[in-house]
Design a protein around this nucleic acid. Structure first.
Lengths: 144, 144
DNA sequence: TCAATCCCCACTAAAATACTAGGGATTCCA
DNA sequence: TGGAATCCCTAGTATTTTAGTGGGGATTGA
C-alpha cells in the first residue's frame, strides 16, 4: 500500500508554488516540470485537478503561471490528496455489503473505517504552512 | 490507495481462529475457506505467512488445524498486516535518496514518514481482543 | 490409512498506476 | 500582432501490483 506518485508530485508542486506565491511570483508549468523532472503534460494534468478544487489559481498569457488560491494555512494535505487521488478510503464501500457468515456481523469493517479516519484526520490537521514555514524544517510539528 | 485483500482475508481468518481457539478447537483451512469464499490454496498461503510470524500455530494430522499462538491481546493489527504485506510504508525508501533541487532539503519526506507512523502506531494499538471481545461489538473501542 | 498441514513452484488474469503524445483554443503582455 | 503561457480534451501504451489458480509430493498423527 503506497501513496501514489500523483500525490507526491502534487504536494511538492504546491510547496514550490507556495514559496513562489509568497514572493508574489507566478510559477510556470515548465519551471516546475524541470525542477521535479517530469513531463510538462503530466504535470499539467495534476495542476488542473488542483485548480478545479480551488487550491491553485492560474494566470494566462505571457507572464502567466500558477499561484496558490488560498492562504497556506487553509490548504490541508488531505485537500491535495483528495484532489489528485479521489476520496480516501482504505477499503471499498462494497465491503459494507459483505457479511461475515460466521460471526453474524463482521467486526473488521469497523476496524478499516477507524484506520481510514485516523489517517484522514491527521492529513486534515497538516497544512501547507506546516511544510513551508521555516520552523518546520527543524523541530517543528513534523520534525523528528 | 487500498488495503490489500490479503490483509482483509487474513484479519478475518485470524478473528475466526481466535473465536475457535477460545473454545479449544482447531480450525481447518477448508472450513475457513468455505466461510470466506476463497480457495483453500490461496488461504493456505496466507496462513503459512501468519504462522511464520508466530501469530498462528498449527496441528497436523486428522484432528489438525489452526490455533492462535498468542493471547488475542498480544496480536496487533499491525502484526497481521506486516506478516501479509510486508513492512508498512506509505512511500518507498528510495524517496529518501531524492533531493528537492529548489528547496535544498525536501520537506515532504518528513510528512510521509509522519503519516506512516501515525497509521502504524494506531495499528499497533489495536489487538485481536478488541475485535473479538463482546464489548467491541457495540460501543467499544472501535464501535460507532 | 486418511485427513490434515507443509512446502515449493510455475503460471495467468485483472486492475491500477504511471505515464506519453498530440492538437487546437484561449488569453494577455509587450 | 506575435509569442508565451494556460486550457481542455482525447487516445493510447507500458509497467507494476494485486489477486489469484493449479499441481504435486512430503510429513504428521489420530
Amino acid at each position: 500500500m503506497k501513496l501514489s506518485t500523483k500525490v507526491r508530485y502534487g504536494m511538492r508542486a504546491v510547496v514550490e508554488i507556495a514559496h513562489s506565491t509568497r514572493e508574489n511570483k507566478t510559477l510556470t508549468i515548465s519551471t516546475i516540470a524541470e525542477s521535479q523532472q517530469l513531463s510538462q503534460k503530466y504535470l499539467e494534468s495534476l495542476l488542473v485537478k488542483l485548480k478545479k478544487r480551488k487550491i491553485l489559481q492560474s494566470l494566462r498569457g505571457q507572464k502567466g503561471g500558477y499561484l496558490l488560491n488560498k492562504a497556506p494555512g487553509d490548504i490541508t494535505v488531505y485537500d491535495i490528496a483528495e484532489a489528485l487521488d479521489g476520496e480516501f478510503n482504505l477499503v471499498d464501500c462494497s465491503e459494507k455489503g459483505e457479511t461475515c457468515p460466521r460471526l453474524g456481523q463482521c467486526s473488521t469493517i469497523n476496524l478499516w473505517t477507524h484506520l481510514t479516519n485516523t489517517l484522514v484526520d491527521e492529513m486534515k490537521k497538516i497544512t501547507i504552512s506546516d511544510l513551508i514555514g521555516k520552523d518546520s524544517f527543524d523541530g517543528g510539528y513534523l520534525g523528528e
